[in-house]
Design a protein around this nucleic acid. Structure first.
Length: 837
RNA sequence: GCCCCGGUAGUCCAACGGCAGAGACAAUGGUCUCAAACACCAUCCAGUGUGGGUUCGAAUCCCACCCGGGGUACCA
């Protein structure tokens, strides 16, 4: 600690406080008083404040420090404003790092996990956060994952959890499958960075697609209370599009092939059809084409399987594909078109088959060019003809060569005309399509919640009976956990081999564990009744507390965690367990803490250690710096920040508390008006600023109040009222209360020096006196042509007419008008007059 | 490519369509000191990315473009 306490000379007021002494002094007092425990029986109006619970890897870092500091402002503020606040904390404690550490150190993952949890818990306590610690939970506790498993079984009963065989993302490094959401845009694993490959495996899925429409539609309600970019990201991820299914009859095949298109109006321009090469449909059609087509297809599929996702994802890659040797019939024109298989058509989007309209889709045009297929323009947009330029046109235009559409110029009308025709003929219909896929939840790893299913050769998939939950993890450690391509649980013979609950015969447990995102999809519900051994969560408490009033977290979870939690909420609502539609009424994401323009990382060597910052400047100064730095959602570059400056300010604020010369409880209403006016304006602004999450401005306003108070104390003779004035006490108490939301230690210390008993968290929020917000006089500006020419001191109650005549009589105004005729006068009393000449 | 968000003093950031500055960092000068650090006092600093438009009046609203950040990407 570099803040030396001032030498305590007898009779002299110290000029600074000892940061570390204050921290050790108040921490036990708060533990004792426990002011933030939420009362389920409270008659008060409730608020549920939630911040994303951490994964226990090592100690807390700067990112945690920021989000917790921001979150704490809201939680403490609501409490001050008379709400009963639920503000819980726990750990998302299943996950790979613990498992990898266990392999490295030949130990059990729980050892690493729970040691880190204790480290983080101690740091959080020292960090002075307003959590209700009685509700602490860890998702890796059997008492928690028992209910994760129970929820899985409920979902399965409703057909929302199922198993299917499908090509899945496989991370060769972590030796496990990944959800689509866990594969980055460049085709690498979001966790370890390895290049993701594909494998054909039977895996468990949650049917998120069943809720695609609602997950999309409800975003409208969240538009104003969720941070915009997250709503946007969710919208993109769910990916709703409107279009049509169109059925093409295939020569020699009974079933027609259905394609999905968003441009049915270009149907007359379809010159070939393409099916996803890796879909079963392609194989079927190849058989129609003959043995050499089958062979060609399988060679082609082999080739594309070998290509990495990175290559696949390169958009400028040349198109590849093969002719399947079959023809399809265009349902409106009767035209015969060839059918191709290619990898630019995705098996799991739409129907896995498209009608190719090269003139009006660049991908199709590239393909047509490569394989010398015909291009036919059917919309004349006025741009050069794509048949010649090889630049597809996608805009509005006049339909040509399009039968009944010819001459039409409106795309919307063109689309609806074709859809009507298709529907009348029974060859297609309008439809809505989503990009969202089902959520792959199986993981071939150990440290997660086991999937509570038993596979019996006689009875098939049998759920573990509820009274046998939880299915606890067997004790495995070290080398037992090494990735081998199958789950480590599969090798735990004694654990895997069980009697079938239905027939009693030999059977095997499902040896996969659930994606840890399952654990975090419902933790906000478990906080409502964390010690209840009879149910996952209390629906009654959920109705009373929920939904979460404000959720704060990082935007790395903008699609994953938030989407999954929303999905869980909707399923549980439809199961009758919840009454609300969305889990988080408002969502705020904090920016990252970076250093010197770069993300902090070991390889760059620019990490900032939170512990060191706390040791050097103290908890309060670090919290203040993070809150003051910028609006919450902006990144903070630590290199631009000055925790030393923050500490300087806190010392100045603290010093005020030693200068107050009136007694506690003095009648502040007799205090000096101008200072009181600043106090009450500050409080009014503070309310608005906290509610609109402009915490950085809140700090600025508090600094302003500190400055004004200092002047009032010292400035006797120059307008200051001196330390005895009751307004000074009111000001300093207000500073302590405002600061307690951000810097609880120094605020508590000030509160004590002001002669109050702890804790400042119990202080009454100042009531704003509207009388004190009225100003004695205001400065009105007079503009000529919008440029300021003069200022007038006027009464705030002045009438428009009076202000106008006052302004027009002003010498500088008269001079500025210079005799020109006044054409118009705009008056916004009492602040502004604009003269137009 | 498409979709979001942003661009204001050297830096971080404020500013209901109405005086561009609330607050801070840095810098400079001073007080204090044997000297320095700390502390305190004072000073300095931009016309709001560019170009149009709307308006009596634009940092703020609209359009186009440039730059930065993020999301997404053969999604038919």
């Amino acid at each position: 600690m570099n803040t030396e306490p001032a030498p305590a000379e007898i009779g002299e007021t110290p000029t600074s406080y000892d940061v570390s002494a204050v921290e050790t002094k108040w921490l036990p007092v708060w533990e004792e008083l426990d002011p933030f425990r939420a009362d389920d029986a409270s008659p008060k109006e409730r608020k549920y404040a939630l911040t994303m619970f951490p994964y226990p890897s090592g100690d807390l870092h700067m990112g945690h420090a920021e989000v917790f500091a921001l979150h704490d402002v809201i939680a403490r503020y609501w409490r001050f404003r008379g709400f009963e606040v639920l503000n819980p904390m726990g750990w998302d404690s299943f996950g790979l790092p613990a498992e990898n550490a266990a392999i490295r150190n030949d130990e059990h993952p729980a050892t690493y996990t729970y040691a880190n949890i204790e480290t983080q818990a101690a740091s959080m306590k020292k960090y002075g956060l307003a959590f209700d610690w009685s509700r602490r939970l860890h998702t890796s506790d059997p008492e928690y994952y028992r209910w994760t498993q129970w929820l899985f079984l409920k979902f399965r009963e409703q057909g929302l959890a199922y198993r299917k065989n499908s090509p899945v993302n496989w991370c060769p490094q972590d030796q496990t499958v990944l959800a689509n959401e866990q594969v980055l845009a460049d085709g690498t694993c979001e966790r370890c960075g390895a290049e993701v490959t594909k494998r054909e495996l039977t895996q468990w899925y949650f049917r998120t697609t069943a809720y695609a429409q609602e997950l999309y539609a409800c975003l409208d309600e969240l538009q104003d209370t969720w941070i915009g970019k997250v709503v946007n990201a969710q919208r993109n991820w769910v990916g709703r599009s409107e279009g049509a299914h169109v059925r093409f009859r295939i020569e020699g095949r009974e079933e027609p092939v259905t394609v999905y298109t968003t441009r049915p109006d270009t149907l007359y321009g379809a010159t070939f059809m393409v099916v996803a090469a890796d879909a079963p449909l392609a194989a079927e059609l190849a058989e129609l084409g003959g043995p050499e087509r089958v062979e060609a297809l399988s060679a082609y599929v082999e080739e594309i399987r070998k290509a990495s996702d990175i290559d696949r994802l390169a958009t400028d890659r040349t198109k590849t594909g093969i002719d399947l040797g079959v023809t399809a019939t265009n349902p409106v024109s009767g035209e015969q078109v060839p059918v191709w298989a290619a990898d630019y058509v995705l098996a799991d989007y739409g129907t896995g088959a498209i009608m190719a309209v090269p003139a009006h889709d660049q991908r199709d045009l590239d393909f047509a060019r490569k394989f010398d297929l015909p291009v036919r323009r059917v919309v004349d947009t006025g741009e050069p003809n794509p048949e010649e330029t090889y630049e597809a046109t996608t805009g509005n235009g006049t339909y040509v060569s399009s039968g009944p559409l010819d001459g039409l110029t409106d795309k919307t009308q063109g689309i609806s005309t074709i859809i009507e025709r298709l529907e009348a003929d029974g060859t297609g219909e309008g439809t809505v399509n989503f990009r969202l896929r089902d959520w792959l939840l199986s993981r071939q790893r150990y440290w997660g919640a086991p999937i509570p299913i038993i596979h019996c050769p006689v009875d098939g998939e049998v759920p573990v009976p509820e009274d046998q939950l939880p299915v606890e993890l067997p004790e495995l450690r070290g080398a037992d956990l090494k990735p081998k391509g199958t789950s480590p649980l599969g090798a735990a013979t004694e654990w895997v081999e069980v009697a079938c609950p239905t027939c009693g015969g030999p059977a095997r447990r499902d040896s996969d564990t659930m994606d840890t995102f399952v654990d975090s999809s419902w933790y906000f519900l478990r906080f409502l009744s964390p010690h209840d051994h009879t149910q996952a969560f209390s629906s009654e408490q959920a109705a009373a507390w929920g939904p979460v009033d404000l959720y704060i977290g990082g935007d790395e979870h903008a699609v994953l965690h938030l989407l999954y939690a929303r999905f869980f909420t909707k399923v549980l609502r439809d199961s009758g367990l919840l009454t609300w539609d969305e889990p988080f009424s408002a969502y705020l994401s904090q920016g990252k803490v970076i250093n010197n323009g770069r993300k902090m990382s070991k390889s760059l060597g620019n990490g900032v250690d939170l512990g060191k910052q706390l040791d050097e400047f103290g908890v309060d100064a670090v919290r203040l710096t993070l809150v003051f730095a910028s609006p919450p959602e902006d990144n903070i570059d630590w290199a631009d920040m000055s925790p030393a400056g923050s500490l300087k300010f806190l010392q100045r604020a603290w010093r005020l508390s030693g200068d107050v010369a009136s007694a506690p409880g003095v009648d502040v209403s007799t205090g000096e008006r101008s200072l009181r006016s600043v106090i009450h304006r500050t409080v009014r602004d503070a309310e608005e600023l906290v509610e609109s999450h402009r915490f950085n401005v809140l700090i600025a306003r508090t600094m302003e109040l500190v400055n004004a108070t200092r002047k009032a104390i010292d400035g006797v003779g120059t307008g200051g009222c001196g330390p005895e004035d009751p307004a000074v006490r009111e000001a300093v108490e207000t500073v302590a209360i405002l600061l307690s939301m951000v810097t609880p230690y120094v605020a508590e210390e000030m509160w004590e020096r002001l002669g109050h008993r702890p804790t400042v968290a119990h202080a009454a929020w100042p009531i704003v006196d509207p009388e004190l917000l009225v100003e004695d006089s205001v400065t009105a500006v007079v503009q000529i042509q919008g440029k300021v020419k003069a200022r007038l001191e006027v009464s705030p109650a002045i009438t428009a007419a009076d202000l106008e005549s006052l302004a027009l009589a002003d010498d500088t105004v008269v001079a500025a008008i210079a005799g020109r005729p006044v054409r118009k006068v705009i008056v916004r009393e009492p602040k502004l007059v604009n003269v137009v000449v």
